[in-house]
């Protein structure tokens, strides 16, 4: 009896605390997400970071602090070279994707009058098949005896198949640009859709041609979408290893392939972790540079 009273009293107190205190309520409501973030994002990062300062000895780790992995990263030219190449390829993928996606997003936002949803769904159709299948499809398209080469040959434009289509950085760019198009179209579409149409009329009214109105009103106002699209494409493609390993050939390998081999055949997890950390920092630096650049562009427009 007495026990029950105190129990309900504690519950009452807790309830009061929960209702009264803003922070307690906030953290309680946040807790599921917070736990997921800690165990799903923060912990693996800590593990990766720690691992990168250890060393591998056959099947065991040497658990003493060491900078050897990082020294190796900078001493052997292959790591920096491949990392820079990855950045370059991803940069090209990002530019190609955004340039392709912008007109499509513009078309849906401004020219499609009804059933916009159908157009948006159509854009996601390629995603209904697996990523791997789409990469293989490009292999068939670009291959030595692939669709493009045999097509051009049967039309009489070629006598010898084009060898430069597959197994090089260009084929990686083509495949990735196609694979990530939807991720670029959607954010750009959203930012274009939000633009008040009377702003475009105001641009024309104040003496600017349609093209200049696009440059001075539409483009700066859709920049948040372009930035989001660029980050959404750039970040994941830097670390991609499926596409380069399938269509990239020896010249098309990227940093993801090196990391994968360290955790795979080479059995050097600490080195793989160190490459991952370096790749992460480089990407972060690139994003910082990019955001700073777009910010100053916006200031210049204003």
């Amino acid at each position: 009896m007495n026990n029950a009273v105190t129990l309900s009293e504690t519950r009452l107190k807790l309830r009061k605390l929960f209702l009264k205190s803003e922070p307690v309520r906030g953290y309680t409501l946040l807790s599921p997400t917070l736990l997921a973030m800690i165990f799903g994002l923060a912990m693996p990062l800590v593990v990766l970071f720690t691992l990168s300062f250890w060393l591998q000895e056959y099947l065991d780790f040497i658990r003493t602090f060491s900078l050897a992995n990082y020294l190796e990263f900078f001493q052997k030219p292959i790591y920096v070279k491949v990392l820079l190449k990855s950045i370059r390829i991803s940069g090209m993928v990002t530019i190609a994707t955004v340039l392709l996606a912008y007109p499509m997003a513009y078309f849906i936002a401004f020219r499609v009058k009804s059933n916009k949803l159908i157009w948006l769904i159509l854009i996601t159709v390629p995603f209904w098949t697996s990523y791997l299948l789409r990469v293989f499809a490009w292999k068939i398209m670009l291959g030595y005896n692939g669709v493009i080469n045999s097509g051009l040959k049967s039309l009489g434009f070629l006598t010898e198949p084009l060898a430069f289509l597959l197994y090089n950085p260009t084929s990686v760019v083509i495949t990735l640009a196609h694979a990530w198009a939807a991720f670029a179209i959607l954010p750009i579409y959203v930012s274009l859709e939000k633009i008040d149409r009377s702003l475009l009329e105001a641009g024309r009214d104040l003496g600017e041609s349609a093209w200049m109105t696009f440059l001075r009103v539409t483009l700066p106002l859709s920049l948040p979408g372009v930035i989001a699209a660029s980050l959404l494409v750039f970040i994941p493609t830097v670390g991609d290893y499926v596409t380069p390993s399938l269509v990239g050939g020896p010249r098309g390998i990227m940093i993801g392939n090196l990391i994968q081999s360290m955790f795979g055949q080479s059995q050097n997890w600490p080195m793989g972790a160190a490459i991952s950390v370096m790749s992460m920092f480089t990407v972060a630096a690139m994003i910082g540079l990019f955001l700073w650049g777009t910010h100053s562009y916006r200031k210049r427009v204003a």
Partner: peptide, 21 residues
């Protein structure tokens, strides 16, 4: 076209460019 006409408009919702001061 609108940009070649010697008239200017005050829009119903004012259409102030949000990215400019």
């Amino acid at each position: 076209p609108p940009n070649r006409r010697p008239v200017n408009m005050v829009f119903q919702n004012y259409a102030i460019f949000p990215h400019l001061d």
